[in-house]
Design a protein around this nucleic acid. Sequence first.
DNA 1: AATGGTGTTACATATAGTGTAACGATTAAT
DNA 2: ATTAATCGTTACACTATATGTAACACCATT
Lengths: 254, 254
Amino acid sequence: MKIIGALEKALLILDKFSFEKPEWSLAELTRELGWSKPTVLRLLNTLEKYGFVNKNSTTKKYHLGLRLFDLGSIVAGQMDVRAIALPVMRKIRDKINEAVYLNVILEKERVCVEFLDCSHTLKASVNIGQRSPLYVGASALVLLAFHEDRERIIRELELKPFTPTTITDVETLFHRLEEIRQAGYAISWGERNMGLVAISAPVFDRHGKIAASLSIGLPEVRAQKEKLELCIKLLQWGGGEISSQLGHQACKLD
Amino acid sequence: MKIIGALEKALLILDKFSFEKPEWSLAELTRELGWSKPTVLRLLNTLEKYGFVNKNSTTKKYHLGLRLFDLGSIVAGQMDVRAIALPVMRKIRDKINEAVYLNVILEKERVCVEFLDCSHTLKASVNIGQRSPLYVGASALVLLAFHEDRERIIRELELKPFTPTTITDVETLFHRLEEIRQAGYAISWGERNMGLVAISAPVFDRHGKIAASLSIGLPEVRAQKEKLELCIKLLQWGGGEISSQLGHQACKLD
DNA sequence: AATGGTGTTACATATAGTGTAACGATTAAT
DNA sequence: ATTAATCGTTACACTATATGTAACACCATT
């Protein structure tokens, strides 16, 4: 499969922009990507002409452009998972008053596509659109555990630790995924953010493939046994509810 | 300013995708764009590799990919106009119970960045991310009337009619914009959608530049004189409110 | 069978993207 | 104040690479 180099470079430039670093200067990008200045500049000019990036005319720094917002909105409109999930998520959030969020797989990462806040001062908070590796946290592990290409994906992962409890070797990862598949849900204790507990259950589409993971995030201090059990119950109910609305048949023959 | 052709082509491909037509086959794109099949295919392959488009493996048709969703979310996070406008928009909607929306300029078009529904069965309904020309409808005309480069932009516009009341010659457009600037708001009667009335007022940023247009859309049958006057009052209040929160000084010296 | 429509691969040509180098314009340091 | 360093930008020659033509396999109708 042939790839267009110039376009690939442009996409790699766009990938550099994130919530954490939404502004880049020409020099920063050339350093980071290791290409010549004119090359990066010409690509940025082209991206700017079509509104994919914008240049601040005083600081000369670039940030992502509005055209990405409207293209993103088209994608959002197509993601019926989101529309279906939202009312279910609201119910769960209102029952338990903790942050509820929905993640899907994108390439070798997970992306948060929906998030509902709760009324606590100390609480989990995720940005919609935020990405994170596929091996850290309950939401990610659920996505991985039920994914049909999990073995290939795992082979391509680099298991870098985020916290002391992050899984860092393939053996334990496989073992953990097997447990999750049997239990039908996952719990993680501070794998990505210290002090944060996450519980997550799978959502399946009409073909029985994993479509998303539905999760609750809360601080350890509020994670008593009974509460966790309620979380599991709510998420399994919610996951099943969304799955069936997506056309998934709960009882399938094997 | 040098432009990279291959990248430009890829961006033109992305521009083909819309709410109305979110799925394209290779053949359709080659016809529409007038390039050779291998060219379009290679560009699509590259876009697909990075998640900017996705190919349905059974129908072989392409649709926009999830990476655009998360890049779009980053842009959405930066648009403080939206966050500031939302509570103001809610107040207006609750007062009048008609659709309220917020538009910004993107290149030579307007884009809807926020939309609030109302409880009527017959009502205006806009998709967030939806684009439309800059010379049709009150929202667009307000954006144009207060834009510093309006003369250049207008020169590059092609005034095609949407309905019998759409403005189609430059002379009347200029005249209309002048009226809008003096009045401080705009009303349009079915310029884009027959039977739909729109009222719109400007939002300015801290530099006094036009940041957005705040609008109400309602069917003609509910557009009585007193109601329109209330709309104008609400939008001018709202526009001023959002502008001042963006750092705009209402009284500036000239 | 035969046609017209797909999507895909191979290959030679010349276009067009590439880096080096030099240019002003700022900003930081002496 | 003068230098030095770093920024963004432009010019130009080279060769890498994006390009279209053509032929391929595949699935539909007819």
